[in-house]
Amino acid sequence: DPDTRIPVINLEDGTRLVGEDAPKNKDLVEWLKLHPTYTVDM
């Protein structure tokens, strides 16, 4: 689902973004380019 929010984690300080704070699936690739310290939180 393009509107599903994907949890991400900041590799530098461990900050996790989940729920309403997390980027949407459809925006994920662009969002990660803009926030290079974050990666998808598995």
Rank of each mutant, 00 (worst) to 15 (best):
residue 28 L to I: 10
residue 17 L to W: 03
residue 6 I to N: 05
residue 34 L to P: 06
residue 30 E to S: 13
residue 29 V to L: 11
residue 15 T to M: 08
residue 25 N to Y: 08
residue 18 V to A: 08
residue 38 Y to M: 09
residue 40 V to F: 02
residue 33 K to S: 13
residue 13 D to V: 05
residue 23 P to R: 00
residue 13 D to K: 08
residue 5 R to I: 05
residue 26 K to D: 08
residue 15 T to L: 12
residue 42 M to C: 14
residue 26 K to H: 15
residue 19 G to Y: 04
residue 11 L to E: 14
residue 38 Y to R: 04
residue 8 V to I: 04
residue 18 V to C: 14
residue 13 D to Y: 07
residue 2 P to C: 15
residue 42 M to A: 15
residue 22 A to V: 01
residue 5 R to M: 08
residue 39 T to F: 02
residue 16 R to S: 15
residue 20 E to F: 06
residue 30 E to A: 14
residue 38 Y to P: 00
residue 41 D to G: 06
residue 5 R to D: 01
residue 28 L to D: 04
residue 38 Y to G: 06
residue 15 T to I: 10
residue 22 A to L: 03
residue 11 L to D: 14
residue 10 N to V: 00
residue 19 G to V: 02
residue 33 K to D: 13
residue 3 D to H: 14
residue 30 E to K: 06
residue 41 D to Q: 04
residue 2 P to R: 15
residue 6 I to T: 03
residue 20 E to C: 07
residue 1 D to S: 08
residue 39 T to V: 13
residue 9 I to E: 11
residue 41 D to I: 00
residue 5 R to F: 04
residue 34 L to K: 13
residue 11 L to W: 08
residue 42 M to N: 13
residue 17 L to E: 06
residue 14 G to K: 11
residue 11 L to F: 13
residue 7 P to K: 14
residue 5 R to V: 06
residue 2 P to G: 12
residue 8 V to L: 04
residue 16 R to T: 11
residue 15 T to K: 14
residue 41 D to V: 01
residue 33 K to H: 08
residue 19 G to E: 11
residue 7 P to V: 08
residue 28 L to P: 02
residue 36 P to A: 02
residue 23 P to H: 01
residue 34 L to H: 12
residue 2 P to V: 01
residue 37 T to S: 12
residue 42 M to P: 02
residue 30 E to Y: 05
residue 8 V to S: 01
residue 24 K to R: 09
residue 27 D to Q: 08
residue 22 A to E: 00
residue 38 Y to A: 04
residue 41 D to W: 00
residue 22 A to P: 02
residue 16 R to D: 07
residue 37 T to L: 10
residue 29 V to I: 10
residue 32 L to R: 06
residue 1 D to I: 11
residue 39 T to A: 07
residue 42 M to H: 12
residue 31 W to Q: 02
residue 38 Y to K: 06
residue 27 D to R: 01
residue 1 D to F: 14
residue 38 Y to W: 14
residue 28 L to G: 05
residue 42 M to D: 03
residue 37 T to C: 12
residue 19 G to N: 08
residue 7 P to Q: 01
residue 37 T to N: 12
residue 42 M to G: 11
residue 18 V to D: 15
residue 16 R to H: 14
residue 32 L to F: 05
residue 19 G to F: 00
residue 11 L to M: 15
residue 41 D to N: 06
residue 20 E to N: 09
residue 34 L to I: 05
residue 24 K to Q: 08
residue 22 A to D: 02
residue 41 D to K: 00
residue 10 N to F: 00
residue 29 V to W: 05
residue 40 V to P: 09
residue 24 K to I: 10
residue 25 N to A: 09
residue 32 L to T: 06
residue 39 T to E: 14
residue 31 W to M: 09
residue 16 R to N: 10
residue 42 M to R: 11
residue 29 V to S: 14
residue 37 T to R: 12
residue 32 L to C: 06
residue 14 G to Q: 13
residue 36 P to Q: 04
residue 10 N to W: 03
residue 41 D to C: 03
residue 27 D to C: 09
residue 3 D to L: 11
residue 36 P to H: 03
residue 40 V to E: 08
residue 3 D to A: 07
residue 20 E to G: 09
residue 38 Y to S: 07
residue 24 K to T: 12
residue 28 L to F: 08
residue 19 G to C: 04
residue 27 D to W: 02
residue 3 D to K: 14
residue 10 N to M: 02
residue 14 G to N: 15
residue 24 K to W: 04
residue 13 D to L: 02
residue 39 T to S: 12
residue 28 L to N: 03
residue 30 E to L: 03
residue 26 K to W: 02
residue 7 P to A: 14
residue 24 K to P: 04
residue 31 W to S: 05
residue 18 V to E: 14
residue 39 T to D: 11
residue 30 E to D: 13
residue 10 N to R: 05
residue 10 N to L: 00
residue 29 V to T: 15
residue 40 V to D: 07
residue 2 P to K: 15
residue 35 H to P: 00
residue 23 P to G: 01
residue 24 K to G: 02
residue 35 H to N: 12
residue 35 H to R: 04
residue 30 E to I: 02
residue 22 A to Y: 00
residue 34 L to V: 12
residue 42 M to V: 12
residue 42 M to K: 03
residue 21 D to K: 10
residue 2 P to I: 12
residue 25 N to M: 11
residue 5 R to W: 00
residue 24 K to C: 11
residue 34 L to E: 14
residue 35 H to T: 02
residue 1 D to E: 00
residue 42 M to Q: 14
residue 31 W to F: 15
residue 33 K to E: 12
residue 31 W to R: 06
residue 41 D to S: 04
residue 17 L to A: 03
residue 23 P to C: 03
residue 27 D to P: 00
residue 5 R to C: 07
residue 34 L to C: 13
residue 19 G to I: 02
residue 18 V to G: 12
residue 30 E to C: 08
residue 13 D to I: 00
residue 10 N to C: 12
residue 20 E to S: 10
residue 10 N to Q: 01
residue 31 W to A: 10
residue 14 G to R: 09
residue 9 I to A: 11
residue 25 N to R: 11
residue 35 H to S: 02
residue 15 T to E: 01
residue 36 P to R: 05
residue 20 E to K: 11
residue 34 L to G: 12
residue 5 R to T: 08
residue 15 T to D: 13
residue 21 D to A: 07
residue 22 A to C: 09
residue 32 L to W: 02
residue 15 T to N: 15
residue 3 D to V: 06
residue 10 N to G: 05
residue 40 V to Q: 11
residue 27 D to V: 04
residue 30 E to P: 06
residue 23 P to E: 01
residue 35 H to L: 00
residue 21 D to P: 05
residue 29 V to R: 15
residue 24 K to M: 15
residue 26 K to I: 08
residue 8 V to Q: 05
residue 24 K to D: 03
residue 11 L to Y: 14
residue 39 T to I: 10
residue 36 P to D: 01
